[in-house]
Amino acid sequence: MRVLVTGATGFLGGVVARELAVSGHEVRGLGRDAVRGRALEADGVHFVPLDLRDQPALMGLIAEADAVVHSAARSTLWGRWADFYADNVEVSAAVARACAGAGVRLIHISTPSVYNATGQTRNIPETTPIGPRFDSLYARSKYLAELEVQAAHPEATLLRPRGIYGPGDTSILPRLALALRVGRLPRLDGRGEVHTELTHVRNVSQAVGLALARPAPGLFNITDGVTIPIWATLDRLADALAVPRPTRQANPRALEGVARILEAVYALHPRRSEPPLTASGVRLLTRGMTLDLTRARQRLDYLPVLHPDQGLQEAIAEAAGQAAAHA
């Protein structure tokens, strides 16, 4: 099968493109990072440098594919709405329209961040009503993208993987490792342990492969299928880094209030980088989330290929190794 993967120079897209190539598919990977593009070529992925806002070029590439995995996105908790809308909503809509017009299968990568403001935290199903409030511009843009994709391409598969981690991750564990190393992370579990679910990048790739082999339209939650304790995991990470475990207690609500003030100040200068503290970031460490995987298990035959016991152990070891290399 000829598969086009957007965001192939990113974390998830790179893993998906490589694993699809290993599985025998003819894979084209789109991205803007030439160095990572050369690495993709070395692993059997044909790299095509492209800005996804270049719609004529993108449409031509989609027309030559049998399937598209749209994993590219502006994935951050901070930024301007205009950029989120252009990169996440408009591009996703264009990809979906092109795929539908050319009869090309589409697997769209979304996020369970759309559930954050629903008030639900345990065993959340895909049928959960969402909006009109969202806890971040990112979540809002990804939900609007889902609506555009479903309207343009009703047969598309939309995956909502929770907290993607694994080799090559530049977001979750590396950022937490840095916060631990500089002693910036307070203890926010005053009311008890916070339980959540994560998803190893190989498990997301597994779900993509299943969606290609067994087409199933609609939304699907994806996780490792196992609940993990956030603060116990952070203690494990601190031990691996050989730094003190966080002990300085802070009130989560008060800290979230401080974060909102910082966000308001930083918003006055839109080109300024992300503030050192965001309300969404605080909530990720203080509000757990587990997802109902029934649909994925029944319709995609989804079964995680990597258990978090192994996946987290490897990811923590990698984070510790990176920290030692930069010490």
Rank of each mutant, 00 (worst) to 15 (best):
Asp135Pro: 12
Ala93Thr: 11
Ala317Met: 09
Pro186Phe: 05
Ala279Thr: 03
Val149Thr: 00
Val27Gln: 11
Ala93Cys: 05
Lys142Gln: 00
Pro308Gln: 09
Arg122Tyr: 02
Pro244Arg: 07
Arg140Leu: 14
Leu176Ser: 03
Val69Asp: 03
Val114Gly: 09
Thr127Phe: 03
Gln313Asn: 15
Arg74Leu: 15
Thr127Arg: 06
Arg140Gln: 14
Leu219Cys: 10
Arg187Ser: 04
Ala151Gln: 10
Pro229Ser: 11
Ala323Ser: 12
Ala152Thr: 03
Gly168His: 04
Val27His: 05
Asp33Ile: 09
Ser205Thr: 10
Pro270Leu: 13
Val5Thr: 09
Arg133His: 12
Asn116His: 11
Ile107Tyr: 02
Tyr138Pro: 14
Ala94Glu: 15
Thr290Ile: 08
His70Arg: 01
Ile230Met: 15
Val3Trp: 14
Arg260Ser: 05
Arg248Trp: 08
Ala72Tyr: 10
Ala325Tyr: 02
Arg133Tyr: 12
Tyr302Lys: 00
Gly190Met: 06
Glu26Thr: 04
Phe47Glu: 04
Ala296Arg: 02
His269Lys: 12
Thr121Asn: 14
Gly288Tyr: 08
Tyr302Arg: 04
Glu64Gln: 14
Arg74Ser: 04
Gln120Ile: 02
Glu197Phe: 13
Ala82Val: 04
Ser171Ala: 06
Ala152Ser: 03
Ala98Glu: 12
Asn116Tyr: 14
Leu147Val: 09
Ala21Trp: 12
Pro49Lys: 06
Asp169Ile: 09
Ile62Ala: 01
Thr223His: 03
Leu40Cys: 01
Leu50Ser: 08
Ala8Met: 10
Thr199Asn: 08
Leu144Cys: 08
Glu318Met: 05
Leu306His: 10
Val91Tyr: 03
His108Thr: 06
Leu212Met: 06
Gly101Arg: 07
Thr127Asp: 14
Gly225Met: 01
His70Leu: 03
Ala151Thr: 00
Lys142Leu: 12
Val114Phe: 08
Arg36Lys: 15
His195Asn: 07
Asp301Ala: 14
Gln310Gly: 10
Ala21Gly: 12
